[in-house]
Nucleic acid binder design. Sequence first.
DNA 1: GGCGGGATATGT
DNA 2: CATATCCCGCCA
Length: 203
Amino acid sequence: MTYSWLELPAEAVDQAARQLLGWRLTANGVTVRLTEVEAYSGLGEDPASHAHRGVTNRNAVMFGPAGRLYVYQIYGMHFCANIVCGEPGRAAAVLLRAGEVVGGLETARSRRPAARRDADLAAGPAKLMQVLELNRAANDTSVVDGTGPATLSPPDGAAGTIEAGPRVGVTAAHDVPWRFWLAGDPTVSVYRRHTPKRRAVRR
DNA sequence: GGCGGGATATGT
DNA sequence: CATATCCCGCCA
């Protein structure tokens, strides 16, 4: 039952996201325990998803089998990773937003000198990638069969209380509460309402 | 805490 | 060509 999120259908990607909280992701000598994730659905229903308009070169991995990483570059300098969920062709995915460093602490600190507290080491999707030293080379690699640079392993104990809210940084579908985090965890980034850079007055 | 700069692949 | 699943450093 441990890898049950792998078997969930695409329409249950929010359940997959909830299940992934507490799991450990290990890569390049550092392990993080996932504390914050977001679910993204595929075609039609979810305008915030990269796969919303169908297959492109960038998002092709999302349409493949579950258990692989969809890594993309954003703002010209950061990388974010999603774990593909659901059956092939459906393009559901879970964005890894934050984690607690539970292994390789010194290495993680050296990779993120700007972090003032240990809780800030992986408190953001791109920060998470930095402590794990992952980039676009990790795109389309598996996290469940040991063939890729990153490996996902089940949590130690019970996951704890899960809270839900709107997703961060998306302009569309602000009302969909598909961001999930472990209640009270210090590594969860504070929610900031999406602020467009300098556009006509939003409402 | 708020605000702006940074730097570029991607899709329209 | 405007945008994007962001981070950091600087100012208050």
